[in-house]
């Protein structure tokens, strides 16, 4: 993460104007207002709910607003196993989305079929539609989801459409100093 280089040119002058490239400005606006279409089919949905809910709060990234019409969405979150029977539905939803559009494969099943190596499961949504970011994990932790989201934001800013994969973090935290201590309002450690 964070390997992507960005160049946004901002030049000031005495009159207080700033100029930038239109593309860079548009990309900057897009990366912080990603309307999502959640295509949630399986147990990964629980972890998706955690990522969206206040504790982890996907709204910090400007990506919280769900649009249940694909025509109003920017990011298609494919969360869970895609069965052969659902494949035409998924492709139709992707085709209905307006450009520019991005796809995130949430979890191992959406990325590659996971352990459902059988007659009923599509072995990864990239067999059906293009994919921008793969988030491995069964299910991925919300931290991995945000790594994926930030990777997508970097890609949007730099105009990079090649697929990216979220790298695993060191998990669980091994040193005590890596742990977060939660405190109640009384100041008592929980």
């Amino acid at each position: 993460m964070g390997e992507v280089t960005r160049t946004v040119t901002i030049e000031g002058n005495e009159q207080g104007f700033a100029t930038t490239k239109l593309d860079a400005l548009l990309s900057w606006a897009r990366k912080y207002s990603l309307f999502q279409y959640p295509f949630v089919t399986a147990c990964c949905g629980m972890e998706f709910m955690a990522a969206v809910s206040p504790r982890f709060d996907i709204a910090r990234f400007g990506a919280e607003a769900p649009r249940f019409s694909p025509r109003q969405s920017d990011v298609l979150w494919v969360v869970g196993t895609i069965s052969q029977r659902q494949a035409p539905v998924l492709r139709r939803i992707y085709e209905q989305m307006m450009e520019p559009k991005w796809v995130i494969a949430f979890g191992t099943c959406a990325s590659c079929g996971g352990f459902y190596d059988n007659y009923t499961t599509v072995p990864g949504l990239d067999k059906i539609i293009p994919c921008d970011v793969y988030i491995p994990g069964c299910p991925p932790r919300p931290e991995a989801v945000f790594d994926g989201l930030m990777l997508l934001q970097d890609k949007i800013a730099s105009g990079d459409r090649s697929p990216g994969v979220v790298k695993p973090r060191q998990d669980p935290a091994l040193a005590k100093s890596d742990l977060v201590t939660l405190r109640t309002s009384a100041g008592r450690a929980e």
């Binding site: 590659c112 990239d126 059906i128 293009p130 994969v165 695993p168």
Partner: peptide
């Protein structure tokens, strides 16, 4: 398997579809 819609080919996708790392 009996896919309802044909899978994308690698030339169509422009990227290898047989599993990317870390799968």
């Amino acid at each position: 398997t009996q896919p309802l819609i044909p899978y994308r080919t690698e030339s169509e996708a422009g990227v290898p579809l047989e599993k990317l790392a870390p799968f």
